[in-house]
Amino acid sequence: MNWIIRLSERKDYPQLMAIENQIWHLGNTPQVTTYETVEDYQKQYTEGSQLVARAEESGEIAGFLGFHNPTGLTTHQKTWIVDVGVHPDAQGKGVGTALLTAIKLLAAEQGIHKLSLRVLSTNPAAIQLYQKNGFEIEGRLKDEFWMDAQFVDDLLMAYFVSRVA
């Protein structure tokens, strides 16, 4: 399947919000957040702060990748934190890889050196996706979260844009 990757627009918010509200659970995030209205979603994500993957055939949004600097510090200007979400019906169909490929290109164009993310150790499919796309584990916060009656590690992963092959 072919995916069209572009920056988010306001018209995408209803579909993005629906995906967000559907995909998050305690197996992949330490706190499930749901959005009641498009306005609530817009407060969290401004236009252009995400990449969206649209199916070429149907035009439906299959996934997103948010990106932003970790802080407002000037010293963080060369780092983006990323978060990825893919609609359950589109998982395993190349959406995550297409989004990660696109963010690496955008980061290189923007002079970004490092892409960072955090992923729970209870999410092996996501860890595998990130590693397949060149992300490496930089650190492990052991027993960081108490979830579903067990401790869960938080993995810190990174991709160094300057190492693009």
Rank of each mutant, 00 (worst) to 15 (best):
Y35W: 13
H87N: 13
N123F: 07
E144F: 14
R140V: 15
M1P: 14
D154P: 11
T29C: 14
E138T: 09
F64P: 06
D154V: 03
K11Y: 07
V152R: 04
E57Q: 14
A18H: 07
K93H: 11
V152W: 05
G27P: 08
S162K: 06
A108Y: 01
S58A: 06
K78G: 00
H76S: 04
W146L: 11
I4A: 13
Q31G: 08
N2F: 11
I81H: 02
A158D: 02
G94C: 05
A126G: 10
Q110W: 01
Q22C: 10
A90C: 13
V86G: 00
T34D: 11
G59R: 09
L105P: 07
W146D: 04
A108E: 11
G139C: 10
E9P: 05
S8W: 00
V38C: 07
A98P: 08
H113I: 03
T34G: 08
A62P: 10
K43I: 11
T37Y: 02
D40A: 11
V119E: 02
L26W: 05
V95A: 03
N28T: 08
E56S: 14
G85L: 03
G63T: 06
M1T: 12
I61A: 02
I4K: 15
D89V: 09
G85I: 05
I61S: 00
E36W: 05
V82L: 11
H76C: 01
E36T: 13
K11R: 13
L100P: 09
Q110C: 05
K114G: 01
L156K: 07
L99T: 01
G59Q: 06
L115P: 00
F160I: 08
E60V: 11
M1I: 14
W3Q: 06
Y41N: 05
G66I: 04
E57V: 14
L115T: 02
Q42H: 13
I23N: 08
A55S: 15
A126D: 07
G85F: 02
F145D: 04
L73K: 09
F135Y: 09
F145W: 15
H68R: 15
Y159H: 11
L117C: 06
S49I: 06
L156H: 09
G134Q: 00
E57F: 07
A90R: 09
P30E: 03
A62K: 06
I112C: 00
F160E: 07
G27T: 14
G94A: 06
S8T: 09
T74Y: 00
V164P: 04
T97R: 12
Q42A: 15
V52E: 01
I61G: 02
N2H: 13
I103T: 04
V52F: 03
H87R: 12
V95T: 03
L155R: 01
T74R: 03
R54N: 12
G92W: 01
Q42R: 13
D89E: 12
V84N: 01
E36V: 07
P88S: 05
A158M: 04
N21Y: 08
